[in-house]
Amino acid sequence: MFAANFEYHRAGSVAEARQLLAAHPGAKLLAGGHSLIPLLKLRLAAPEAVIDIGRIGELRGISNGGGALRIGALTTHAEIASSDAVKSGAAALAEAAGLIGDPAVRNRGTIGGNVAHADPASDLPTVLIALDATFTVNSPDGERSVSAADFFQGMMATALGEHDILTAVNVPAGGGGSAYVKFSHPASRYAVVGAAASLTVAGGTCTSASVAVGGATAVPARCASVEAALAGQALSADVIAAAAAAAGGDLGDDLLGDVFASGDYRRAVTPVYVQRALAAAAERAG
């Protein structure tokens, strides 16, 4: 299919993108294009203007400072998956980025586009919630920081306003271990269920646990009862299995389902993936 007609503008800097946004109300930002362009071609979106931010150098790259990784919004999934800083500081994120789609998608798709699009079957939101990431947003009235818990608001809905530009994702590079385990849809490769776990361990016991599950709900669910069951425990296989068993209950009542996998099934297998993510994270946490 062909997209409906639109004006195309390319921004060379965030400041220029801001001016273009002001001049073209209703315009859409274009990063890697792997979510937006399909929508345009299927005519599910028909903005009058598209502002290409894909070549703004200041929005791309990974830096490490103050115990956190700052990942520019335009950093691609492939760059994240292969970054040593991410692999050692936030293993789950590197793992998730490496499991996205296929090489073409990973080479074009960006972390900013992925989270701004907020597809419930995406991988990165789940991990970023589990890792307590924060999002740096450039708005018409200055810069603000939004926590992951506040950023994802619903299916394809985020805290970004129409004229907001996401500039960076900040991920605490903790001392613990994290992991992401995914049940990929065989056709789309998106997550049917994706489990992210992040653990810190001291003296053989778990000092903090953070677990999120995506794919099954409109916004990835934080698994409070799993986390509670782990805190203060020695991370044996049995403890992990028992804690993970509660994960299905943390998903709430509104589960996503389709011809491939019903909500009930997603709930039923969630503990398996949570358990596998926890086991891998525990191993990394040492």
């Binding site: 065989p186 056709a187 789309s188 389709d258 011809v259």
Partner: peptide, 15 residues
């Protein structure tokens, strides 16, 4: 409802 390759799963080499 399986109107595209997003829903209709074709065999993939890595599977």
């Amino acid at each position: 409802v399986t109107g595209s390759m997003l829903d209709y799963a074709l065999p993939r080499a890595d599977l």
